[in-house]
Computed example of a mutant assay.
Amino acid sequence: MNIKAICLGAFALSVLSGVAFAGALDEPSNMQPFFTDASMKTMKPKAEFKAAWDSMAKDKQGAMMKECQDAAMSKPHAEFCANLQALGGAN
């Protein structure tokens, strides 16, 4: 095999595996209800945050809680996870 084919295969594998590792906290449709702006920089007040959490499907809640309990996964979402932990993670 030539080096070009090997590099192309490695690149394709890395792109496909990157999509597979995206979690619930990385999914914009999951996170948007908790933010006031489209850029998702400003979180909603605690009462609205809780209302958004309560309206979310239980399977999504579970996935988000699981990721917030993982230090590596939650690091980029520290403020969100802190708010979630303050709720107790459940209704």
Score class of each variant (00 low, 15 high):
65 M>W: 12
76 P>G: 03
4 K>H: 07
19 V>S: 08
78 A>R: 06
64 M>K: 09
84 L>F: 04
50 K>T: 13
90 A>W: 05
38 A>H: 04
32 Q>I: 14
15 V>S: 03
30 N>F: 01
44 K>I: 02
8 L>C: 08
15 V>L: 15
4 K>T: 03
24 A>C: 07
47 A>W: 00
54 D>P: 11
72 A>V: 14
83 N>L: 04
35 F>P: 04
35 F>T: 15
89 G>T: 06
86 A>K: 15
60 K>I: 12
88 G>N: 09
31 M>W: 00
16 L>A: 11
27 E>S: 12
44 K>L: 00
83 N>V: 11
19 V>H: 05
59 D>I: 10
13 L>E: 01
56 M>L: 15
50 K>L: 06
64 M>V: 08
30 N>K: 12
8 L>A: 11
60 K>S: 06
8 L>P: 09
12 A>I: 14
33 P>I: 14
2 N>A: 01
46 K>P: 14
88 G>W: 04
40 M>A: 05
91 N>Y: 00
34 F>P: 01
40 M>C: 05
27 E>N: 15
54 D>R: 10
80 F>E: 05
41 K>N: 08
23 G>N: 08
9 G>Y: 00
9 G>H: 07
68 C>T: 15
14 S>T: 15
18 G>S: 05
70 D>R: 04
33 P>H: 11
67 E>Y: 06
81 C>M: 05
84 L>S: 01
38 A>F: 07
14 S>K: 04
40 M>K: 09
22 A>Y: 11
49 F>Q: 10
87 L>S: 05
89 G>A: 03
78 A>P: 11
88 G>R: 13
56 M>I: 08
90 A>Y: 09
11 F>T: 13
48 E>P: 05
89 G>M: 08
6 I>S: 02
9 G>T: 09
54 D>N: 12
8 L>H: 02
29 S>P: 00
7 C>I: 12
36 T>L: 09
87 L>V: 06
42 T>G: 00
53 W>E: 04
47 A>C: 01
79 E>P: 01
52 A>P: 10
29 S>E: 06
86 A>M: 10
80 F>D: 01
70 D>M: 07
68 C>K: 10
69 Q>S: 12
74 S>N: 05
55 S>Q: 10
81 C>D: 02
81 C>Q: 04
39 S>Q: 13
67 E>D: 03
71 A>R: 04
18 G>W: 03
4 K>M: 04
25 L>V: 01
34 F>G: 01
88 G>E: 02
48 E>T: 03
21 F>W: 13
58 K>L: 12
50 K>N: 07
44 K>T: 12
35 F>V: 15
59 D>E: 11
34 F>A: 05
